[in-house]
Amino acid sequence: MQTKNGDYNVRQSNLYIILYAIGLTVVCAGLLAFASQALKPRQDANVELERKANILSTVITLEEGADIEKIYNERIREIVIDFNGNVVDKKPTDINLGFEYKKDPKDRLLPVFEVRSASDPDKIENAVLPVFGFGLWNTIAGNVALESDFNTIKGVNYSHVGETPGLGARIVSSEIQDRYKGKQIFEGDNIVSVDMQKGEGMDYSKDAHKVDGMSGATLTAKGVNNMLREYFRCYENYIKKNRTSNQQASL
């Protein structure tokens, strides 16, 4: 191919373009692979620490700089249960919530993190139940901690992949999560879950099953509500089993 001046321009040849594209791709891919490999241990450590911190933060107020690893190992007993509430011989780290979510609720394996009392390791103080569902843009997940009565919510904690920052993404803020504290999931002997309402700024302190909504994020709130309802149903047998045994113990 020739330019106006008549000189041959190597930059216009097909071979040059193809070689250039291949070279660029190889260099970029190499750099990215290197960066990904070099940063992976740090990123994985972040994810694992976040998982433990998320579970703990539902029941304990974590102070800045607290040794999450140590507290977690002392207080948490990890178990996996099936739909009937029986313990299965598996570890929660083997369970992929997103993968289990695709199964029929009756076939799901469910991780439970039982919080042991600091003085008496046999006593269950709280049970932390991981939940999973869909928000507006992508998946959301969370941990719900129940008091030893297996009815009152001790605390919740949500995480999300891609909710809108400032709107739906507020589910990760303690301001929103604190609204769930003290709410109850049982009405009589039935689980009715807890519903986030539409609109913000209302007072639901008298209603045990309603929490104030998030302005501008009604669809994310709906996702959260569905997630809770669905997972309370999955955990129902486990919850009821412990509820009755705890009630008998207290009698």
Binding site: A35, Q43, G162, A169
Partner: peptide, 15 residues
Amino acid sequence: QLLKAYVYDVWKQLS
């Protein structure tokens, strides 16, 4: 990748 490795909470927020 750098944000994910070094400022994990901000990385999550910006998603």
